[in-house]
Structures are given as structure tokens and as C-alpha cells.
Amino acid sequence: MMKKNRNKILIIGSGRLGASIAGKLSAAGLDVVIIDKDVSSFRKLDDEFGGYDIVGDATDLFVLENEVLINEVNEVIITTNSDNVNLFIAHICFYVYDVPHIYVRLNDNDKGILLKNTTIKPIYPFSLSFEEYMRKRSENDNYENSHS
């Protein structure tokens, strides 16, 4: 079978994060597709977005194959508001469709262990907030120390 040309970026979930990534990558000239179950969530997309938006369920293989054209996707970013759904879709993209680059948002760091032995890259808002707090706090300490 001829290897299809994979050049699309797929974003699943058009929340604040999904929509922002979509806008940014689309503005940079990349071929972006964004999918969400709810049509009203595309209001978050900014005017710069020049890709496709698809209303549909990204856990449905028929939608992934026939509407998203998953075999042409090189990179997927999964940002729905459910960790379980995100994990499930990440597994589908990895085990069923061999998508080369997979990023998934997980609010619960513990779920990351289920990505073992895959190339799926998790994004943990918890860790980011925690690290940011610790960084800000240490800046503050440094400031106070230098003024005492």
C-alpha cells in the first residue's frame, strides 16, 4: 500500500486551548483541522483561523476516517474536557492509525502511566501550574532576600 502523505494537523476539542493552538498554527501557514462535538465551541476560534472545522464525535472511527481523513494526519493535539475521552482517543490514534505525533492533555497526572510504551506526549496543566507557582514563589523569595 502506498504511504499516504501525512501533512495535516488535527486538533480535537475546540476549547480555549484547542482553539488557540488552531489559530496559531493556522496563522503560521499549516494545514489545520479542528473537530468538536458542539458547533458553538468554534466561536472561540479567532479570525486568523483558515483551516477546516468539523462538527462531530472524534471517538467515532467513521468520522475519523471519512471526515477528518486521519490517515493524512501527521500531528494530533487532543484537548477535550474529559481525561478519559482524551486517553481513549490518544490510544486510537496511536494503536489504530499510527499517527506520528500525538499530544494529549491530561488533568490527572496519574493517567499518564497509561501512555507507557507509546510515543504519546502528555501535557499536564497541574504540573504547569505547580511549577509556575514554585517559580513565582522563588522569585519572590529572592526579591525579599535581596531586600532584607
Binding site: 471517538t59 474529559s82 478519559n84 475521552v85 486517553l87 481513549f88 490510544h91 493517567k111 497509561l114
Partner: peptide, 9 residues
């Protein structure tokens, strides 16, 4: 999907 994650975990 809840069932899937429960089983896999």
C-alpha cells in the same frame, strides 16, 4: 469510554 479506561487501568 469509562469502561475502556477502567479495563485498561
Amino acid at each position: 469510554i469509562e469502561n475502556y479506561v477502567t479495563c485498561i487501568t
